[in-house]
Amino acid sequence: MTERYPVADATELSEDGSRVIAEVRGQEIAVFRHDGDYYAVANYCIHQGGPLCEGALSGRMTTSEDGWDWRYDEDEKYVVCPWHGWQFDITTGRSPKDERYAVPTYDVEVDDGTVYAVR
């Protein structure tokens, strides 16, 4: 059965790109605000156990159809693990390079000014 756990006051996540890290039943979970929505991700990198969600948020490099023209997509929804740089999309928990590589994500609810992680 899922329960919801308070992790932050909504005022702490008032801007896109902001985050809080809270402990929920012995596990650290980060809640990010991105493009007006909230996303919760386990603060644990599946690579070697690093504190994934303490890393920077980044966009991604893309190329044109012909593989040549190089651009930076500023949609900064990828969290970069501070240990070895593995990246995961905070909205899905999946690696942008191979979706079989994924970290746990959780639903988020906001109720009366409090942000809850659901697990």
């Binding site: 690579h47 190329t63 593989g67 070895h84 942008p96 191979d98 590589y101």
Partner: peptide, 17 residues
């Protein structure tokens, strides 16, 4: 594989590991 997952944004020619 490790470096592709870490620095894959520099390797746009690949579509898989």
């Amino acid at each position: 594989d490790d470096h592709y997952l870490e620095l894959g944004y520099e390797l746009p020619a690949l579509s898989q590991l």
